[in-house]
Design a protein around this nucleic acid. Structure first.
Lengths: 215, 215
DNA sequence: CGCTATGGTGAATATGAATTCACCATAGCG
DNA sequence: CGCTATGGTGAATTCATATTCACCATAGCG
């Protein structure tokens, strides 16, 4: 078991116990329960561990409240406690009618928040329709792309983006230069495409945060 | 708001409050907190609601334990889609000690049941440690593989499997012929490996059901 | 050596919280 | 009408839990 930075062996044990207890019971343990698990007879010793972990930022307490312990983000609780968001799967639409995209989801999948990372934007899933020339990026036909919906101004050159080109959704490497939008596939044999800003033939959905595939 | 079978309006309100409180606080509320939210001044009234909900199977209590309420699966299924399973992320272990694998998860991620498909076996996640020669399959370094834990007899030739070879976990195409186990990478330049059955140098974790990647 | 951090025991204390008791109001029903 | 289920008040009681106090042992360090 990896010991977290600045935690002693024993503090780490307490921390790991908190994680497993919360996962199993859907609520934090009491001081006595912690002590019981780690063979500490005095709740005082446990209390001091909890305070130490709080000081180091691994948890927060609500004083004088039973089971008042909550693990912090730093301590990595999001993934196993909060139910993961349900992301809509959007289907292709014509690039000159991008508003249509969000209104006709074909389904939805739960995606763990840790695959999303910190983002305030809406996130959706798009399916890769065909072999779209991104095999070098490990993207294949049928994959789901996790897409953070951003507008063009928030993107950096070289980022992987999902875009509607014509009536197809594809993944492309993004580049904006010489006042034109360049969308490049990763594989040879596929043509890069280039559009003027606000071209009706091309609509950027957003940044690709991840990929999911069912075999 | 849809009222669940056999719940009164008020009982339903209590139940919905429990759900939202647990979602927001990662722990169940106290009687007083419930009463507070629903403008019930007497904890006794709240207590009677909780007992009623317990009797109807919407929750279970741990008597005389603070925050001893736990919502049941039954109540969950009626009210919202089941939270996706939380799969442990297992780390490399030596192939001659495969039992060790499950006992030291390094974390866990929620994975939508639709990516898993129908399976009764245990499913876990493994991380792809390095470029392991499966780029033709769209598998890259750092990817999570969704692995259905199966033993060798249940596998078919040509299936993609995850295996512990030496101390590394890798994805390989599975083939059993001439009384030997053949594990082939997809890319040229990587050697296929071949083992006798039950070789201590190789342990099959199971069939790869899917892939997840965070960029 | 004295000083400090860590990890502990055991008991006392105060507050949090579940549970019980007594009693009330309203609505539906045979 | 009397009966029962539901929903409620307020206070008392008892157990659970957090927090504090006093004191101890060990190891590393200047």
């Amino acid at each position: 078991m990896v010991i977290k930075p600045s935690l002693t062996e024993r503090q780490n044990q307490v921390y790991e116990f908190l994680r497993s207890y919360i996962r199993d019971h859907q609520k934090p343990p009491t001081m006595a329960e912690i002590g019981n698990a780690l063979s500490i007879r005095s709740t005082n010793a446990v209390f001091k561990f909890v305070v130490a972990l709080e000081k180091k930022g691994y948890l927060t307490r609500t004083p004088r409240v039973s089971r008042g312990i909550a693990l912090t983000q730093a301590g990595d609780q999001l993934s196993f406690t909060r139910p993961p968001p349900l992301l809509p799967i959007i289907r292709a639409a014509r690039s000159d009618q991008p508003e249509q995209l969000r209104h006709h989801p074909t389904g939805a999948l739960h995606v763990d928040a840790r695959l999303l990372g910190p983002t305030d934007a809406d996130v959706c899933l798009v399916t890769v329709a065909g072999d779209d020339g991104m095999s070098e990026q490990g993207i294949r036909m049928g994959d789901f792309l996790i897409v953070e919906e951003t507008n063009q101004e928030q993107l950096f050159s070289g980022e992987l983006v999902a875009a509607v080109i014509g009536e197809r959704i594809m993944a492309r490497s993004f580049d904006f230069s010489r006042n034109r939008l360049h969308l490049q596939p990763s594989a040879r044999g596929y043509a890069a495409e280039s559009f003027p800003p606000d071209s009706p033939g091309c609509h950027i959905i957003g940044r690709v945060l991840g990929v999911m595939r069912k075999l």
